[in-house]
Design a binder for these strands. Sequence first.
DNA 1: CTGTTAGCGCATTCAG
DNA 2: CTGAATGCGCTAACAG
Lengths: 360, 360
Amino acid sequence: MDLDQQADDPGVPVAPGGAGGRVTMQQVAAEAGVSVSTVSKVLNGRYGVSPATAQHVTGVITRLGYEASLVARSLRNRRTNVIGVLVADFEPFSTEVLKGAADAIRDSGFELVAYSAGGRVDEHVGWERRYLSRVMGTLVDGAVLVTPTVTDVQYDGPVVAVDPHTGRSSLPTVAGDNLQGARLGVDHLLGLGHTRIGMVTGRPDLVSAQLRERGYREAHAAAGLPVDESLLALGAFEAEQAREAAHRLLALPDPPTAVFGANDLSALAVLEVAAERGLDVPRDLSVIGFDNVPESALSDPPLTTVEQPIRRMGRDAVALLLALLDGAAVADTQLTLPTTLVTRRSTAAPAGPTSNGAVS
Amino acid sequence: MDLDQQADDPGVPVAPGGAGGRVTMQQVAAEAGVSVSTVSKVLNGRYGVSPATAQHVTGVITRLGYEASLVARSLRNRRTNVIGVLVADFEPFSTEVLKGAADAIRDSGFELVAYSAGGRVDEHVGWERRYLSRVMGTLVDGAVLVTPTVTDVQYDGPVVAVDPHTGRSSLPTVAGDNLQGARLGVDHLLGLGHTRIGMVTGRPDLVSAQLRERGYREAHAAAGLPVDESLLALGAFEAEQAREAAHRLLALPDPPTAVFGANDLSALAVLEVAAERGLDVPRDLSVIGFDNVPESALSDPPLTTVEQPIRRMGRDAVALLLALLDGAAVADTQLTLPTTLVTRRSTAAPAGPTSNGAVS
DNA sequence: CTGTTAGCGCATTCAG
DNA sequence: CTGAATGCGCTAACAG
């Protein structure tokens, strides 16, 4: 029930009958019999307050459980001591970054705010710029952008991008080595003896996806193997599209014996589709992903994947941001973190003679 | 959907002279040659603006890439359309809740802000109340408290607690069934034939921990087995203490053949310690946890554990909160979600001659 | 239709 | 040492 539908009386504080609720500095001041500015001074430890009143006010503050509104304070101050992590949605990747950010923020004196408009991103491309405008300058001192798709945003404040999907970012950036990672993954498959390796590709407009596909091609070239273009299917980093792509690949007259998913989401979709089609992984089909999101270990079988040090990426991004806030000249840093292969149970050597009829 | 790289993209702002930074409404007004209130009206679609100026102002807004400051708007308005998730730290549990919250918030028109002071919580008990004061009323319309340790916080605003660690909360609450879950876990061990089952207990002041211990005891009682008090060691939901507890347990003259960790963190610690002591899990020792955080599948061997539907807890909490905001009379809802056993590879029948060949 | 005025809660001058 | 005034960016009354 919303009781305070009445107009706020500027002079009279909200009736304290209801216990709790948002206590304002006004109320503290009134209760303590001093002015708001005095309360403010006490709160911020400014000089110019007698020990007696200071102690009295402190007492009232704790008694009322008063805490300054982050918002009001942010609006007034230039510095807020809050760092923002801006994400399109809270999913496995971004939350992993968040954990890393939390690692880096600990004992830094900063607080962390993660902000998301609730996944309604596809509607508005350029969420990153809008989010930045909303929170930068007020609320947060600096921000980490997680997987932004538009990085030509020239923002003058301290902003760091993590795993930006587009290239030529003018922002300081922390990313995994996509090219090297894809090579690692496909080389693993090649090394196992696979020669017909399919790929569920990512969003064609994203540089990260392009690099992973390039790694796939380079690995083939290095092995002296031609790339069969019919073995590439668009998954677009998207569950449903990845599933369709997997179906297309596995329905081929001469289907691949292994599939490289452009990310774990895609690879997990391949795993599902393989199960639906009665294929045993890894006996009939090897599957490998990219990211090593925690969820990838939960699949059946657990997914072999290329790990990006996501958590560390978050940690490094915040560290970079803190340096930036500290005035360090690291504005054009482009960190590329190495990727590694995590071998679990979704990959194995191809069964039987190379192109022998598979069970369908 | 994101193929709109068409010709003139009104979404791309042109940075004004001073490089794009925080653009204020003042600047938009000046640039458009109108007053701030007119800009405000246009922005909020209020009536009373001629189509001509409205369009002009809209043009300037998009050209400058202006977006209203969340903070300033929050301060002015009673309603912000933002929901807060307040956490002590971003760790596996809270981030899982966050994913669930994001699920529930999608297409609700609300935005999500997750707030953490950076894990420096142990210093100040009662972070939940302080966080609430900081953000409620301004910045967020309602809040979800994740694993609060103090719930006697009588807050008059819409607040929902997830997995509160203390009992009798006056807040609407969503939690897993700790007692039933513990029974499930220990019964599993009992069923396997274990008779000396150790427990690394949680923080004694937390009801969730107390319930899990009670479940342990009840399971023993139901099986007609006495509880050996020397087999209980305090882990306090804390990595280092859990490790020490594990060492103590495993160094016993007659060590347990299985250990129940009060949460996954504790169980994972037991796994580590067992490895250090040269014990093979599950041959020499069975280990079971509680929570089923994603990380529990990554251990070696993957951890058998009692799952709480964490993500769903986040989803339900936000749904509850939205109902509350909508004026629904659900203020005293106490949701208890069922727990389930997730059998992975850290548990097996005891090796010894004790109760060989026990079939259940 | 438009601009002016008055705060939201707080921190900081600057008078008293 | 203290309190009244000012304004952060914005919205909602009310004048013009």
